[in-house]
Amino acid sequence: MRTIVAASAVLILAVLPVAAPWLQFVLTLAIAKGFAALGVAVLLRAGLISIGHAMFFAASAYGVAFLARAGINDLGLLLILSVLAAALLGAIAGLFLVRYRAIFFAMLNLAVSMVFYALCAKLYSVTGGTDGMTVPVPAVFGVVLGEPTFKSVLFYISLALMLLVGLAIQRYLNSPLGHALAAVHSNEIRLEYLGIPVWAVLLVAYVVSAALAGLGGAIAGFAIGRVVPDFAFWTASGHLVLIAVLGGIGGVPGAFIGALFLELLHSVAVTVTDAWNLIVGLTLIVVIMFLPQGFYGLFSRKEASSL
């Protein structure tokens, strides 16, 4: 049943741009942000809120731009290397950050990401400052494509990655390591007494979440064709948290549903009104008050509550 729902959803997404070509860019960007929001949602499992994950999103997009400047021109290679770069950055930041909890974790992520943002904006000679860097159209499996064709290919590759990576993350969350991650939220003392190193469980999750944000950032870089410091700005991080909450705590499909909803709402809303932030705020209030499990809760089977 779930597989059927998921398959039809992906099919609908796949044919939507054929009917409405303007949707292709919106959907590609939504999937990109969905990856990053999924990264945030992974950490939410442990009860940790990162308000800094746009840093990894941006770092990976910058990574693509730098690698392209250095002459690497293959989409697959660029994706892999930039995600690895984000994961490495995640490992370094994570070593320091996973010792903190609650508001301290949230604020330190924010602080680190804002340092990163400032560096991107100020190091004009390296990053192009606020002008950012271009992300050129790469070759796909050795084939050089025109820009419109590449954007279509990018969309379908993103869609396929959404499925594959989504399934992999689902597996991770169902594995012993994923359960240990959720247990961090419940009881760290018991985890220690089981002989489980909480910091290592969290570090793995942090690296995974950084890699996910990195994958999203690389896709966004390709889709937009440019990376600017604003990719890393704290409001971008806030949006990722918002999407993760919209999609429901922890659900893998939820992150993408939340991202799709927000991107579609955005693209519709900006054409009729400039009260975008008002709409976002009201939506969040509605979701938190009426759908505590997020949008995903609408689709998932309700469990009978035991009395």
Binding site: R171, Y172, N174, S175, P176, L177, G178, H179, G195, V204
Partner: peptide, 11 residues
């Protein structure tokens, strides 16, 4: 005790 470091097989 054993099998924690597994991110692929289910718990």
């Amino acid at each position: 005790k054993d099998g924690l470091w597994n991110a692929i097989r289910p718990l």
